[in-house]
């Protein structure tokens, strides 16, 4: 028989993570819910979810192609460079905002039933990751159109997506606490995300940057995700060990920080829900 004793508290991170792992049945259902709601059981629904990144890419390509295509090293093409950037940023943005929203708006359930709220955030980022994999279909088409072939390294995309999922989940957990505590945090995060978007080489090649700016941009962990992804899927960037380390390190760090802060803060904010 399961026994709840409130005096046994603040269990270490590992056992909390284990509790999340034990709720994987619920996690699977929540992911299925997110995907069903997003795609509305239709093929059009699936394409609809890609409309935003594809349209953004088309506009950016139209505007920036002449300026930037010659600035990429030979063998690299601007259109797949751009689309891979937009797709990965979409995963980040979507996972982050949906994850934070699903925790902040889950009050009806989370204040009444004992469910680990982290599961809600995780389900949103995982369903965004699945959405991202569907985006690899148009990306492959764009690669072929640009005269490139997917490299043999492409299975490593899974590592990139795994890291991005952890990164976005950690971020989403922090954000959900802010959402609940402060009504105006939503508009502030929009500004922050826009700034972050421009500080990430989504549509410009790193080579166009001045030396000082370049140093700053390379300090942005999201840059490493984009560079690694472009490297392993099509070879439109070169990722060194440094980028891999930054990607893996930031994923684990942000996930743990988000998780620990959330674990501590949740009992305080749940009263406000």
């Amino acid at each position: 028989m399961q026994v709840y004793d409130s005096s046994v508290r603040q269990t270490p991170v590992i056992s909390q993570l284990k509790a999340i792992y034990e709720s994987r049945g619920l996690l699977r259902l929540l992911v299925a819910r997110d995907l069903t709601v997003r795609y509305k059981r239709s093929v059009i629904g699936i394409w609809w979810s890609l409309l935003n990144p594809l349209f953004t890419t088309a506009v950016m390509f139209y505007v920036f192609n002449t300026v930037f295509k010659s600035r990429l090293p030979s063998g690299q093409a601007f259109l797949p460079y751009l689309l891979s950037g937009v797709l990965l940023m979409t995963l980040f943005n979507q996972g982050l905002t949906m994850g934070a929203d699903s925790v902040a708006s889950g009050a009806g359930v989370l204040t009444k039933v004992y469910v680990r709220p982290e599961i809600f955030a995780l389900s949103s980022t995982i369903s965004s990751a699945i959405n991202f994999f569907i985006g690899l279909i148009p990306l492959t088409a764009v690669l072929l159109i640009s005269g490139q072939t997917p490299t043999m390294k492409f299975p490593l995309v899974i590592v990139v997506v795994g890291c991005m999922t952890l990164f976005a989940t950690g971020f989403a957990l922090l954000l959900s606490i802010a959402y609940i505590n402060f009504d105006d945090s939503r508009s502030l995060i929009t500004i922050f995300l826009m700034a972050l978007q421009y500080m990430t080489p989504v549509f410009y090649p790193i080579s166009v940057l001045g030396p000082h700016t370049k140093r700053v941009i390379l300090l942005n962990p999201l840059t490493s995700y984009l560079q690694v992804f472009r490297d392993v899927f099509g070879g439109n960037a070169v990722a060194t060990f440094h980028e891999w380390l930054m990607m893996g390190g930031s994923a684990i760090a942000l996930f743990l920080i988000g998780f620990i802060v959330f674990m501590r803060q949740w009992p305080k904010v749940v009263a406000k829900l």
Binding site: M1, S6, K112, V113, Y114
Partner: peptide, 28 residues
């Protein structure tokens, strides 16, 4: 329901808990 940990004092609940929550709160 173990949603809120108490600031002090102790709560022990033995066995399965089912809340009759607002109907349909978990529905989509």
């Amino acid at each position: 329901a173990r949603v809120l940990p108490p600031t002090s004092g102790r709560v022990i609940v033995r066995g399965k808990v089912a809340p009759m929550i607002e109907l349909g709160a978990g529905f989509n």
